Amino acid sequence: MSIVEEAIRSAKRLSKAASALSFDAPVTHVYNPLAYAWKPHEAYLRRLNPKGVRVLFLGMNPGPWGMAQTGVPFGEVASVRDWIGIEETVKRPAAEHPKRPIEGFACQRSEVSGQRLWGLFRERFGTSAKFFKEHFVANYCPLVFMTESGKNHTPDHLPKSERKPLDAACDKHLAELLQVTNPEWAVGVGKYAEACLKRVAGDSVRVTTVLHPSPASPAANRGWAPAATRQLVESGVWEA
């Protein structure tokens, strides 16, 4: 089986495992874009270099205006459609939050984190084909969690009893993805993702991190792209 087909099968297993879990208040709605946005996600996985990658970037979980809409990690609509070249049909979750509608590629909101991340790659590599030749971006957890108000609820705020089975499923998928892609470097986008990589990867890959591009981070708002580039150059992931 090819690397790409293995990655696709692994993502399907993760989707099934994650969908079987349940979560209590304050979480009221859970979206699984690996289910309702499977078409664009599969198209994204097919961008994976069949020979493996040198650098794997890992985020925490989908954002409500990014991967939740497009099925692509950090998937700001314009970046996915216009730079990566993916625009597929997106269905809707069974239980949709009225304040967080899924509009797919018609979504007019822009996810700042995805805009910054894919914007940096566009500036450095020019074309997505050049980026995917040695790089790939994934998320640790496939689920989006929301409270009754519609507020985003990240996995690190789940109680231990709910996080344990979720982490088990996500760790298994991450281990499979690392084995399949066989990267030289794994880069956690933010400290949470870095910790996940260190726990799962062990000594099989060199692990480092970059500042998370979220607008909630004052440091990221002071110039995320130069800061992230500097971190990647200093760690040895990229050349100056």
Rank of each mutant, 00 (worst) to 15 (best):
E5Y: 07
A7G: 03
R9A: 12
R9T: 00
A11L: 05
K12I: 00
L14R: 03
L21H: 02
T28R: 12
N32H: 12
P33Y: 08
K39T: 07
Y44W: 10
G59Q: 01
P62Y: 05
P62V: 00
P64T: 13
E76C: 14
V77K: 12
R81D: 12
D82C: 14
W83Y: 10
I84D: 09
I86P: 03
E87D: 13
E88N: 12
E88L: 09
V90Y: 00
R92Y: 06
A95R: 15
A95C: 15
H97E: 06
P98T: 06
K99H: 02
R100I: 04
F105V: 03
A106K: 13
R109G: 03
R109M: 11
R109H: 11
Q115M: 14
R116S: 06
G119A: 11
L120Q: 11
E123Q: 15
R124H: 13
F125Y: 15
A129T: 14
K130A: 15
F132N: 07
A138L: 06
C141S: 10
L143S: 01
E148Y: 00
S149Q: 05
S149T: 04
N152V: 14
T154M: 05
K164I: 01
H173A: 11
A175D: 10
E176K: 10
L177F: 07
L177M: 14
L178D: 10
T181V: 14
P183S: 10
V189A: 02
Y192S: 04
A193G: 09
V200S: 11
V200N: 09
V207S: 05
H212W: 12
S214N: 13
P215N: 09
S217I: 11
S217R: 04
S217C: 12
P218H: 02
A219F: 11
R222P: 00
W224H: 05
G236E: 07
W238A: 06
